[in-house]
């Protein structure tokens, strides 16, 4: 393979692995720091969407064969539909259960 292309792939994949680590760790941190399910849902969407999507992008970049690359591409396309649907179902469940959401330092009338 062309060495320039090879190194471009490697460096981009490393960058996306770094994204995976950073977003995964900070989302898990937010899962424990935030006080109620509404805001925990936001923090968890960083882990379960951004971090996993970055991982899939990195794996797509270093995929060894076309068969694998196309399967990962289709998985990513379905992930773009299934992951928002999951968080939407949970948010709707919270909404219908009538749970009030966290309002930090209420200074002005909203």
């Amino acid at each position: 393979m062309n060495p320039i292309l090879f190194w471009a792939r490697e460096v981009l994949a490393l960058l996306f692995f770094l994204f995976f680590l950073v977003f995964g760790l900070s989302g898990l941190l937010g899962l424990f720091r935030f006080p109620d399910p509404w805001s925990r849902l936001q923090a968890s969407s960083v882990t379960s969407t951004t971090s996993v999507f970055s991982l899939l992008t990195a794996l797509l970049l270093i995929a060894p064969s076309w068969a694998m690359a196309s399967r990962i591409l289709i998985i990513m396309a379905f992930f773009m539909i299934s992951s928002p649907t999951g968080s939407h179902i949970i948010a709707r469940f919270l909404w219908f259960s009538g749970l009030p959401h966290w309002m930090p330092e209420e200074k002005d009338k909203g």
């Binding site: 900070s26 989302g27 720091r33 960083v46 930090p104």
Partner: peptide, 22 residues
């Protein structure tokens, strides 16, 4: 916009401001 708002959420987790509303 996906990565931009992800970085914003990370900033909030590390102690930034937020105002959740419907």
């Amino acid at each position: 916009s996906f990565y931009l708002s992800s970085f914003r959420i990370v900033g909030t987790i590390l102690g930034g401001p937020c105002r959740p509303r419907i």
